[in-house]
Amino acid sequence: MDRNKHPIINTAYQLVPATGSLLRTLGTVFMHSFRKRETVSYPEESVYLPPRYRGRIILTRDPDGEERCVACNLCAVACPVDCISLQKAEQDDGRWYPEFFRINFSRCIFCGMCEEACPTSAIQLTPDFEMGEYDRQQLVYEKEDLLIDGPGKDHDYHFYKVAGMAIGGKDKGQAKDEEAPEDVRTLLP
């Protein structure tokens, strides 16, 4: 018998397994009464956040303790809500650093795009979300509020050790995989 030609019979055929499925669903959901609850009773219980959780943004320092941020502006341009603003300045030895570095956390959506864009591992998101304020103005963080003393998640990276620019303590040719500067006054092969 072709069931499709007899919709009533077709419906009746489907009804039995469908009812069974409904009942099984009810049963399964009911059995959840005896499961452990997933809710963490914050703030009485502290929350476990994985190290790569995207929370409060920090600026880190390289292994030598120097500011990692070179004020390249890539985090600012990657930011979808445009909440990062900074200004490049230069130290006497040629090292770039941000004159100011401001994040407006009242706009930040903690998407982590800045961290992904950062070529020097300077800007990192941390597992900390407890940043509530009663005054919105307090959510505007300046460099003093952002800069920490350690290297954060990335322990070894040192941008200037792989960049070509000469800075104090690292001359041309002293970076990783670099030859000594060429002598332009010779034509010898």
Binding site: V77, C79, D82, C83, F100, R102, V140
Partner: peptide
């Protein structure tokens, strides 16, 4: 169109 920092460049004066 990539102009950045619109919600932060003036935030030190007033967050609004």
């Amino acid at each position: 169109h990539r102009y950045s920092g619109r919600t932060a460049m003036r935030a030190h004066l007033n967050v609004n």
